[in-house]
Structure formats: structure tokens, C-alpha cells
């Protein structure tokens, strides 16, 4: 029981201290999970993190589930995951309620008009970073372009594109391996 509480509080702290998730989370995870608690070795944590990146879902959530499961079984996995999202729930609900009440103020509207420009640039930078890791040859370039254009020009669900690209990956990367 104590261990579950410990898992919840530790991951709540990790969630509350990480800005941006993903990569920003790794140093705090190392400190809390490896150095302070000894719940995983450095290598194990890197493995969990790598798998968290290449399974569906939020990387931070996946890693929390992993460490929790290893430490406290299925219940541990669930408790650690609830811990990592707990600060977000509180903080965002407070901010969202605040902004809903002040959305009509001129100062808030002007601030967000400026912020939206910044969001464009941040998304663009994120795409560039992902591009370097995901578009590695002609086949992946075609998949990128096809999905981007398909998503802009049609109303099809993103799920359809993800599924088709996964299947394409299985067939096309095999072919490439054979020709090498």
C-alpha cells in the first residue's frame, strides 16, 4: 500500500515538474526513478523510454505505466500513470476556467493573437525535428507527402492514415532490406 502511494506521489512530482513532456522528462525520470528510488537501472529506463516512444500514446504516460508495472504490478502501472497526469488535470482545469472568464478582455484577446503566431513556429520546429528522424529515404518521403496532402485535402480520419502507413511500412521496408 505504501509502495503504491510512493509511486503515485513520485510520478505526480515528475508530471508537475516537467514542462513539455517527452524529452524534457528524461532527466527528472533519471533522478527520481533511478537515483533516488532504485526502481529501475539506467539501461532499463532507456529501454522503457525507447518503447514508450514507439508505442501509441503519450511518451510520458507510457514510461510511467512501464516503471509502475515493473515496480508494483498491474495496479502499480495504473497508479503511476494516474500520478503523472494528476498535476495536469488540476493546473489546466484552473487555467481553462480562468481564461473562459476573461476571454472577452481586449488584453487577453491581443495576447492570444500574438501567441497564435508563436504556436505556428513551435509546431513548425516540432515537425522539422520529427522530420529528421522519420523521413530517412525516398519511401518515407512519399509516405510523409501522401499523408500530409491526404489529410489536408480529404476529411478522412487520421486513424486511416496511421493504419495504412503501418501496413505500408511492413511491406516496403521488407523489400528494401531484401534488395540490400
Amino acid at each position: 500500500m505504501n509502495k503504491l502511494l510512493d509511486l503515485f506521489l513520485t510520478f505526480a512530482r515528475i508530471g508537475g515538474l516537467t514542462f513539455g513532456g517527452g524529452y524534457a522528462m528524461l532527466p527528472i525520470l533519471q533522478k527520481e526513478v533511478v537515483e533516488k528510488r532504485g526502481w529501475a537501472t539506467e539501461e532499463e529506463l532507456m529501454d522503457y523510454y525507447a518503447i514508450g516512444q514507439c508505442t501509441p500514446g503519450i511518451i510520458a504516460v507510457n514510461t510511467a505505466t512501464f516503471v509502475g508495472q515493473r515496480t508494483g504490478g498491474v495496479i502499480g502501472g495504473i497508479v503511476a500513470t494516474l500520478g503523472v497526469v494528476f498535476p495536469s488535470l488540476i493546473i489546466i482545469s484552473v487555467i481553462a476556467a480562468f481564461i473562459q472568464n476573461f476571454a472577452d478582455l481586449a488584453i487577453v484577446q491581443n495576447a492570444f493573437a500574438g501567441i497564435r503566431v508563436c504556436v505556428c513556429v513551435l509546431i513548425f520546429n516540432a515537425v522539422l525535428k520529427l522530420w529528421k528522424k522519420s523521413v530517412v529515404d525516398k519511401i518515407t518521403l512519399v509516405i510523409f507527402l501522401a499523408v500530409m496532402l491526404g489529410s489536408i485535402l480529404t476529411d478522412l480520419s487520421p486513424i486511416l492514415f496511421v493504419l495504412m502507413a503501418g501496413v505500408a511500412g511492413i511491406f516496403l521496408s521488407k523489400k528494401e532490406a531484401q534488395t540490400k
Partner: peptide, 23 residues
């Protein structure tokens, strides 16, 4: 591994398309 070879560029493409609508 090979499924993710296809999934990664698709995910990047979807985010790029979403980004373009903000732009």
C-alpha cells in the same frame, strides 16, 4: 520495426497538415 518505419513519417505528415491549418 518495419511498421514504425511507415508510421513515423505518417505521424509527421499529420502534424504538418495540422500545423498548416494554424498557419
Amino acid at each position: 520495426k518495419s511498421a514504425f518505419y511507415g508510421l513515423r513519417p505518417a505521424s509527421t505528415g499529420l502534424i504538418a497538415a495540422a500545423g498548416l491549418s494554424v498557419v
